[in-house]
Design a protein around this nucleic acid. Structure first.
Length: 579
RNA sequence: GCCCUCGUAGCUCAGCAGGAUAGAGCAACCGCCUCCUAAGCGGUAGGUCGCAGGUUCGAAUCCUGCCGAGGGCGCCA
């Protein structure tokens, strides 16, 4: 509707022979006395048109083409042009929604352009915790929203299966396994201590007995002291090296793969149960082994953007707006994580995605300029990369902040959260706030089955509508008459008009939420729509004697149910028929 | 020290690319079920939009400075 009005105004301005005016903006009037929509074009364009705003407004109204959409046009205040829509414009929405069904609210705005959304991408060194949950819910919803408005969306998880952290994990598992075999050892302070490490070790012991056992003393011989007295980093690095030599490459590889696959499978399963599914799990190791990292470094070197200093190879990222230069190849010859990330992002662009969206934790924000710098240095436009930073979520239980510590393994996992509040509440709560906003996640509220809980409030509206239909069927009332018997013009009550206006907004909300990457807009909208419905429910009876009126009202609430279902679906939340 | 994000009602937050008297939900107070789920609805009260300047027809919204909160500044990933 907005677009149709914009066309009318633009055509009128063209007919008037006015040029050089700013783009026409149509906005929804906040105050019903100002009609349904308004444009400020006369105010904004007064200077360019060389006449006072109210004069421009008056001439614009005269030049406006006739349209069945409009019931009235007025000039108000300093020069606003207010549009009042014809009753029919809203009523026709109901059959449109019912016909479109799940497709209502979708569009072709994205024109099938390819967009990649990469999110979560947590290191597979442990189960996902509640911090990852927000990125998962947010990334999945942004991806679904973009798909709904016509983009060709590719969802990807970048698996950091190369590098030191994975070696620490494999070593942690093996040391726990040795303990299960009866070896006595001091478990390193820097190793992974979570229960899941014991679980993987126990699986290894169960399936292979003592086949991987070696004396602990052999492994720890000559290893520098652990922290806090010694250097815990040197300690764990030496242990990794010993583990590799004592076990030998093929057997080390086996333990490594066991740990990696167990955790990736666990993460994948966890996300699937959260309603988050990927098109691709992209392996960092595969990227390294393909030579892409070395190729990217070579490209930067040939383009003259690198230099050697203190035995390391540096990328001159300051030339592209970064605060300081960054290391690509360490003194010890190993490439940095940053180097593989450059290769990864280059690879994304080369795969033909027009836009690449990364969802990162806000603690990585300092990382954005250097990745963009690298892309620019490689001759790519950094604007094709959009990094969405998600702030941390803080859990509250009983009014108290839930303390978490990753190091000690004392954190709340995503799985525990799902178990405690359910998938629906978790998905909804995570995206209820703008992503750059700190999120207070109230566990008690999420779990409560009351009006205070926005998820239940919206779901309840949906369930209520189905309950009405069930009641009607029980009473033997005809509820699905042929289209010819509809009498939508009977919807004259204020509550019905308000509900129709809310329904009309849905496509605009989906569009804005998708393009601005702001799913919270949809959360707020659904609450408002549910509120308009509950109000209507309390004010009027739907199952009335008058068949024509009853039919019109049922059609209206069926349309409401459809929009609630579509909106909740985009958020990954179910729309139950009974509660 | 430098950089990023945030600062709106007692609390948690909206406010859509500046627009017409600042909006919700909790919490507080007052009402509404012989009637489709009261997991609901209506009403009252509550804010100099952190502070100070600037930009213009017009600023919670844009710019600058200050104050406050959180986060980031590794040859870690």
């Amino acid at each position: 509707m907005k677009a149709e009005l914009r066309n009318l105004v633009t055509r009128a301005l063209e007919d008037m022979g006015l040029e050089g005016l700013p783009a026409v903006q149509i906005e929804r009037a906040r105050d019903p006395r100002h009609g349904d929509y308004a444009t400020n074009i006369a105010l904004v364009g007064a200077k360019a048109a060389g006449m006072p705003a109210r004069d421009l407004a008056r001439r614009l109204v005269e030049a406006l083409p006739d349209s069945p959409l409009l019931a009235g046009v007025e000039i108000a205040g300093p020069g606003f042009v207010n549009f009042r829509l014809a009753a029919d414009a809203y009523l026709s929405l109901v059959p449109r929604i019912l016909e479109a069904g799940p497709a209502f609210g979708t569009s072709r705005l994205g024109q099938g352009r390819r967009v990649q959304v990469e999110f979560v991408s947590a290191n597979p060194t442990g189960p996902l915790h509640v911090g990852h949950g927000r990125g998962a819910a947010y990334g999945a919803t942004v991806a679904d929203l973009l798909a709904a408005v016509g983009f060709d969306v590719h969802r990807e998880y970048y698996v950091n299966d190369a590098g030191r952290q994975m070696d620490i994990l494999a070593t942690s598992v093996w040391l726990r396994y040795l303990e299960l075999c009866g070896e006595e050892l001091a478990f390193p302070s820097n190793a992974y201590r979570g229960d899941y490490v014991w679980d993987i070790a126990a699986g290894l012991h169960r399936d292979h007995g003592d086949a991987y056992r070696h004396p602990a003393a052999e492994v720890f011989r000559g290893v520098p002291a652990d922290g806090p007295e010694g250097d815990k980093e040197a300690h764990i690095d030496a242990l990794i090296a010993h583990t590799k030599t004592v076990l030998g490459e093929p057997r080390y590889h086996f333990v490594f793969e066991l740990a990696l696959n167990t955790l990736v499978d666990d993460i994948r399963d966890d996300l699937e149960r959260f309603g988050v599914v990927y098109d691709q799990w992209y392996s960092e190791r595969a990227l390294v082994e393909s030579g892409a990292v070395n190729r990217a470094i070579e490209c930067l070197r040939e383009a003259g953007h690198t230099y050697l200093r203190a035995g390391a190879l540096w990328f001159r990222s300051t030339a592209f707006g970064d605060e300081k230069d960054r290391v690509l190849v360490r003194e010890n010859g190993q490439t940095t994580y940053f180097a593989s990330d450059i290769a990864y992002h280059l690879d994304k662009l080369e795969r033909g995605f027009e836009r690449v969206i990364d969802v990162w934790g806000a603690d990585h924000h300092g990382y954005v300029p250097r990745v963009k710098a690298a892309l620019e240095a490689l001759g790519e436009s950094p604007d094709r990369l959009d990094v969405l930073l998600v702030q941390f979520a803080v859990l509250y239980r009983g009014g108290e902040k839930v303390q978490m510590s990753t190091r000690s393994g004392e954190f709340v996992t995503l799985r525990q959260l799902r178990k405690e509040v359910g998938r629906d509440a978790a998905r909804f709560f995570y995206v209820m706030r703008k992503c750059e906003q700190h999120l207070d996640f109230d566990l008690d509220l999420a779990r409560s089955q009351s009006a205070d809980n926005p998820v239940y409030y919206v779901q309840y509206a949906h369930a209520r509508i189905h309950s009405v239909l069930a009641q009607g069927a029980e009473k033997g009332l005809s509820l699905e008459p042929s289209p010819g018997t509809t009498h939508l013009e009977r919807l004259v009550e204020g509550h019905e008009q308000a509900l129709l206006k809310d329904l009309a907004r849905y496509p605009e909300v989906v569009e804005a939420a998708a393009l601005d990457h702001e799913p919270h807009l949809l959360c707020h909208y659904l609450r408002e729509l549910a509120n308009a419905f509950h109000t209507y429910y309390n004010a009027h009876t739907f199952l009335v004697e008058d068949a024509a009126l009853r039919d019109a009202r049922i059609k209206l609430i069926l349309a409401v149910a459809q929009v609630l279902r579509n909106g909740l679906g985009l958020l990954g939340v179910s729309a139950p028929e009974h509660m």
